[in-house]
Amino acid sequence: MLLSGTVGGGSYVYNWNVTPVSTNGNQFTFNPFNSTQLQVTVQSATNTAANCSGTATIDIEVYPGATLNMTLIEGVSCTDQADGQVSLVISGEQGTGYVDQAPFEVINATYPI
């Protein structure tokens, strides 16, 4: 993920709450593994007065995966019987302040022929 911004003339010092993986001038690259809020404070390199700095924040949402598990409860009792049984459980991101992954929806099921 690449973030870039513009500040008016002069040189500045950028302080991020998360360390960028690389920096190129006023372009910063991050590689977050989880959703987070990035915050940067920009301070004039030549004037350290408090009124010569500014802060910006941005919410970064990392798209969550989901854990889908199927477990065999029992197989079929013999050839040509259809009495096998499995359990399925799916869990994803929830309660993090971002959009919950649930509800999930079954969109396809392929049965043995």
Binding site: G75, D83, G84, Q101, P103, I107, A109, Y111
Partner: peptide, 30 residues
């Protein structure tokens, strides 16, 4: 199990009457 069925987070679904072989399920999130 039916197509279009909704599942909540962490909900367990029992699927029965399955024949022998590979059984696949595809689920879509929000």
């Amino acid at each position: 199990m039916t197509i279009g069925q909704e599942l909540q987070n962490g909900e367990t679904l029992i699927i029965d009457n399955l024949p022998e072989g590979n059984f696949s399920v595809t689920i879509k999130d929000n």
